[in-house]
Amino acid sequence: MLEVITQPVTPFAQNSNLLVCQTTRQAVIIDPGGDVEKLMQVIESANCKLIAILLTHGHLDHVGGAEQLAQHCNIDIVGPHLGDKFWLDALPKQSEMFNFPMAEVFSPAKWLEEGEQFTFGELTLEVRFTPGHTPGHVIFVEHSTKRIFVGDVLFKGSVGRTDFPGGNAAQLKQSIESKIYSLPDDYTVFPGHGPTTTVGYEKQTNPFTSGRFG
Results as ranks from 00 to 15, higher is better:
Leu2Arg: 10
Thr6Ile: 14
Pro8Ala: 10
Pro11Met: 09
Phe12Ile: 03
Asn15Ser: 04
Asn17Lys: 09
Asn17Gly: 01
Val20His: 05
Val20Arg: 08
Cys21Asn: 08
Thr23Met: 06
Thr24Ile: 03
Pro32Arg: 14
Val36Thr: 12
Val36Asn: 06
Lys38Leu: 15
Lys38Asp: 11
Met40Arg: 15
Val42Thr: 15
Ile43Met: 13
Ile43Trp: 14
Ile43Cys: 13
Ala46Cys: 12
Leu50Ser: 04
Ile51Thr: 14
Ala52Leu: 11
Ile53His: 07
Thr56Pro: 02
His59Asn: 01
Asp76Asn: 12
Ile77Lys: 09
Ile77Val: 13
Val78Thr: 13
Gly79Asn: 01
Leu82Lys: 14
Gly83Ala: 11
Lys85Cys: 07
Lys85Trp: 08
Leu88Asn: 08
Ala90Ser: 15
Leu91Glu: 05
Glu96Tyr: 10
Phe100Cys: 04
Phe100Asp: 01
Phe100Gly: 00
Ala103Lys: 03
Glu104Cys: 00
Trp111Ile: 02
Leu112Ser: 04
Glu114Gln: 14
Gly115Asn: 12
Gln117Ser: 09
Gln117Leu: 04
Phe118Gln: 09
Phe120Tyr: 12
Glu122Ser: 06
Leu123Asn: 13
Leu123Glu: 15
Thr124Asp: 13
Leu125Ile: 04
Leu125Phe: 03
Leu125Gln: 05
Leu125Asn: 01
Val127Ala: 10
Thr134Phe: 11
Pro135Arg: 02
His137Thr: 13
His137Ile: 05
Val138Tyr: 02
Val141Gly: 07
Ser144Glu: 13
Ser144Lys: 10
Arg147Ala: 09
Ile148His: 04
Ile148Gly: 04
Ile148Pro: 01
Val153Asp: 00
Leu154Asp: 00
Lys156Tyr: 07
Gly157Met: 02
Val159Cys: 10
Val159Lys: 08
Gly160Thr: 10
Arg161Asp: 06
Asp163Asn: 14
Asp163Phe: 11
Phe164His: 10
Pro165Leu: 07
Gly166Cys: 01
Ala169His: 14
Gln171Arg: 04
Leu172Pro: 07
Leu172Tyr: 06
Leu172Ser: 07
Ile176Gln: 07
Lys179Trp: 05
Leu183His: 08
Asp185Cys: 05
Val189Ile: 15
Phe190Asn: 00
Pro191Gln: 01
Pro191Asn: 01
Pro191Asp: 01
Thr196Phe: 00
Thr197Arg: 06
Val199Phe: 11
Gly200Pro: 06
Gly200Gln: 11
Tyr201His: 13
Glu202Ser: 10
Lys203Phe: 02
Pro207Ser: 04
Thr209Cys: 14
Thr209Asp: 04
Thr209Ala: 11
Ser210Arg: 15
Arg212Cys: 03
Phe213Asp: 04
Gly214Gln: 10
